[in-house]
Design a protein around this nucleic acid. Structure first.
Lengths: 150, 150
DNA sequence: TCAGGGTAATGAGTTATGCTAACGAACATG
DNA sequence: CATGTTCGTTAGCATAACTCATTACCCTGA
């Protein structure tokens, strides 16, 4: 434990942290249900997302990023390849490894998925008034920064 | 589709919605990994959370709330009962139904779980400056309202 | 140069967690 | 009281994760 009172350094309080955690987990769970393709498991979808963010990666890197064991990633990558969503190429420097990258099909599917979830979230946000939305809008870039920290 | 341009009603824009969605999903995923008890599956944990929010419920109600089929909930409740985390009592008005409620053990475990996730999030928030945190703090109640909409 | 240890991916088998179908008990209604 | 409906459960199955073991390849040191 690096810090046992982590909420005092910039005026944060436990209540706000608690509200944030609870709300993020709830909304996140509901967002997860807004799937565009029922034939892809959440992990497969997540791998595609990781590939979209990081470009290409080896199966081992993907396994570490997704908190999944290497054999699981082998199978997931094989399934994605069979569906035409990723491409496998030999590693240029290490013949043990492979390089996984997403296809244009996967890019289109991801975009569609983002679109659907955005639409759902935007519709949910209809229930907010202008002032509340303004606060959310101001916090959006901060949440993005938070998501990319560490 | 009730509205095909849901982002114009209160000045919302697509970029903010997109940033919110992306950040919420990423932080939500990382929060999910901060588990206090590895022996409980995510769904079991979720059921305990639902019980904490709603007091007690019948297996059928729990199945609907968790988007799970009744037979799955039967098994989940049985596992939770075997672990001493929930209690089953006969329904006072309908002898077909049962009433599930959480034990003190479960309440303590949930509190510990919230504490751990809050600590993780608070530590992550260390990377923000005072202004950024203030924006997040202002948005926290709005996110909570959003999470409970509909 | 080649022998050994270490790492990457994979194969095989197991476990966990969801589903559907089918059933019995309890309610509700004609 | 007869019949249909609802609730929980049981049985059987599908999927997707895990662990353990294996193969192929890299790299270092004698």
């Amino acid at each position: 434990m690096l810090t046992n009172m982590p909420d005092l350094s910039h005026g944060a309080d436990a209540a706000a942290v608690n509200a944030l955690r609870s709300a993020i987990m709830r909304i996140g769970r509901r967002l997860k249900h807004q799937r565009v393709d029922e034939s892809l498991s959440p992990t497969e979808m997540s791998v595609l997302g990781t590939l979209a963010r990081c470009g290409s990666a080896t199966p081992g890197e993907l396994a570490r990023k997704e908190h999944v064991q290497p054999p699981s990633m082998t199978r997931i990558v094989a399934l994605l390849e069979a569906k035409g969503l990723v491409r496998l190429e030999p590693h240029p420097e290490d013949r043990r490894q492979k390089v996984v990258s997403q296809t244009e099909t996967a890019e289109a599917m991801l975009e569609e998925s983002r679109r659907k979830r955005n639409a759902w979230l935007a519709q949910l946000a209809e229930g907010l008034d202008a002032d509340e939305w303004e606060k959310l809008r101001a916090a959006a870039p901060v949440l993005e920064k938070l998501a990319h920290l560490q």
